[in-house]
Design a protein around this nucleic acid. Structure first.
Length: 572
RNA sequence: CGGGGUGUGGCGCAGCCUGGUUAGCGCACUUGGUUUGGGACCAAGAUGUCGGAGGUUCAAAUCCUCUCACCCCGACCA
């Protein structure tokens, strides 16, 4: 690939539109260009990176016994109406109409289509298990696209769907995908952490995410993991053992009384005013889940986890009530809500920590008043659950020893045990050995191909540019002719290009008439793991220079040994 | 959708507050020359519906109204 001929528009300055390092670098190094918000063109270098990632993923999927197909991007809306997701997903699902005014959608994922396909063709349990996958463009009309390929509206994803007869089969299929994922990411040169995650809008009962750990702004999600065992979960899902039990649990209950707390609305204001610690308070947070009203009780020093609360409430999501609604419900401005005296129309869900507290402080449901020495007998709790968020340094819920540590990561893959949500809705059943119709048990498994590429850049770069892991780099070697205006040197470089190519390397050859400094700067920016420099001094001495992108030192190799040396370094 | 911000040559920006007649700078680009291992130098040159529409005014990149696009924060999410 001669740089003088191909299309690698590098930029000297950071584009104004980019915030993240990886986004800036992909633009600056000439990998991508934006067409419109959240939609990108992949330029020749990017195309090669994506092809390499896709190839690795494809090989691992094939090895795991999955079969590649290609499904349409445009789907009839009817299919999505049947599973209920046409309504559940909201405007993120891109809706449009064809010329006959028939409602259509752009596929953001393909559970509906693949289930519809299998429904017509799989009649017997004998045909199971089956796993079908594709590498395809997906479209999600994100509320707010950002970070380049990280949260684009159009992106490339590998999505696989497993079909099993029973739970045991699903477990097996799931494990195969997990193994394939770990192999695929490892082959891409990326360390990933597999974390437990929430199933969200996908439905289903169990899910994991594969995260690339980064220490930059690009870490979109926080994960908590245990250094002593293999427990890891994203923040939404993570659980923990509490750091300490509230001391109040050993006290004798006292009768409650009201105190004035003028303008003390926040936990901090109340603790300052009453001169107590936050863990003696109980926060009352008011939510709505569907048409159900919820009061969530949580210790003052804790954070609520809305995902857990939603699970406890039995709804898909919860939404905090706005100020006026809170006022109507409690008779007091926001900041003075409490559980005592709340009506039956409100479901009271208490965190398990609250359920052991004694003589605590709550809002009085009256302006500028709190109640002290409140006890569980003073009000009604409809349900007790873990609804607080786990925090770093708390103990691991699995091994009960390790202290959880917090890290940030980029999600590059996910796996869901879907169960029968889609097969039931679409009537995808097989006949069992007794002749009964049973819904197929499904799993779904995604890898963001474009996102993986950007995650690699976010993970591997320095101040000069990208440092690709070898297996997904757009080329094996970057050949720089230090002075392409020098005919003798240019001829020598052409020969090196020939012999490297002959040896089976894919070479990006900088044969442009540019100054050496420009070429080196572009080489660092583009980030190919190996650089070979053909220069005048070397020509005189009979050596060419070899340099790794991730190291400062360069070394020289005699002409006739160059190819072997490189091959040996690259594939030892 | 709420809050904030930006649209001026391919890219990055200044000019706008305080309207004024040829709209400027750096980079990139073209031509010629010198230079040639870490983003060269000299000379000459090309490139603008100042996001769009309407309005105010003798006069609008600049003021007003509407509109579109993009970016950042939030809700959402792979």
């Amino acid at each position: 690939m001669r740089m003088s001929r191909t299309f690698i528009p590098t930029l000297r300055e950071d584009p104004a539109e980019a915030e993240l390092v990886s986004h800036k670098l992909l633009l600056r190094a000439g990998y991508i260009r934006k067409l419109t918000a959240g939609i990108y063109i992949y330029l020749p270098l990017m195309q090669r990176v994506l092809a390499k990632i896709s190839r690795i993923v494809r090989e691992e999927m094939d090895k795991a016994g999955a079969f590649e197909i290609t499904m349409p991007v445009l789907h009839p809306a009817e299919l999505w109406q049947k599973t209920g997701r046409y309504n559940d997903l909201g405007p993120e699902l891109m809706r449009l109409h064809d010329r006959h005014d028939r409602p259509m959608v752009l596929g953001g994922t393909h559970e509906e289509v693949v289930t519809e396909l299998v429904k017509g063709e799989l009649r017997s349990y004998r045909k199971l298990p089956l796993n079908l996958y594709q590498i395809q463009v997906k479209f999600r009309d994100e509320i707010r696209p950002r970070f380049g390929l990280m949260r684009g509206r159009e992106f490339i994803m590998k999505d696989a769907y497993s079909f099993d007869f029973d739970e045991a089969g699903l477990d097996l299929s799931y494990q195969k995908m997990v193994d394939a994922y770990q192999a695929a990411f490892a082959r891409c040169g990326l360390d990933t952490v597999m974390v437990e995650s929430d199933t969200g809008a996908m439905g289903g009962k169990s899910a994991h995410e594969f995260m690339v750990i980064v220490d930059t702004e690009g870490g979109e999600a926080t994960i908590l993991s245990c250094p002593d065992c293999d427990y890891a979960a994203n923040l939404e899902r993570a659980e923990s053992l509490p750091k300490e039990q509230p001391k109040s649990s050993s006290e004798a209950p006292r009768p409650r009384s009201a105190v004035d707390t003028p303008n003390a609305k926040t936990i901090e204001e109340v603790t300052d005013f009453l001169n107590v610690k936050a863990n003696r308070l109980v926060k009352t947070l008011l939510y709505r889940s569907g048409d159900q009203l919820i009061a969530a009780l949580i210790r003052g020093d804790r954070q609520i986890n809305e995902t857990k609360l939603a699970h406890a409430a039995g709804g898909p999501t919860v939404e905090m009530l706005d100020g006026p609604t809170v006022e109507k419900l409690t008779g007091a401005p926001v900041g003075f809500a409490g559980p005592v005296g709340l009506g039956r129309e409100v479901t009271v869900i208490a965190d398990e920590e609250v359920a052991v507290m004694v003589n605590f402080i709550v809002g009085a449901n009256a302006r500028d008043k709190h109640l002290v020495d409140v006890n569980l007998s003073d009000f009604r709790i409809d349900k007790t659950a873990v609804i607080r968020g786990a925090e770093p340094a708390e103990r691991c819920p699995r091994c009960r020893k390790g202290r959880l540590v917090s890290r940030r990561g980029i999600e590059v893959g996910n796996t869901f045990k879907l169960g029968t949500k889609y097969s039931q809705a679409l009537g995808a059943t097989v006949t069992d050995d007794a002749g009964n119709e049973r819904p197929i048990i499904m799993g779904s498994y995604g890898i963001g191909i474009t996102r993986t590429a950007q995650a690699a850049v976010e993970r591997f770069h320095d101040e000069r540019g990208i440092i690709w892991p070898g297996p997904i780099a757009p080329a094996d070697c970057h050949l720089v002719c230090a002075n392409s205006d020098d005919a003798a040197l240019a001829r020598a470089a052409d020969q090196v290009y020939e012999s490297l190519t002959q040896a089976g390397l894919f070479v990006l050859y900088d044969d442009r008439v540019e100054r050496a400094g420009v070429k080196f700067a572009d080489a660092d920016l583009i980030g190919i793991p190996w650089r070979v420099t053909v220069g005048a001094k070397g020509l005189a001495k009979g050596t060419w220079e070899i340099k790794r992108r991730d190291r400062d030192a360069a070394e020289s190799a005699p002409f006739d040994q160059l190819v072997d040396r490189l091959k040996q370094e690259m594939w030892p």
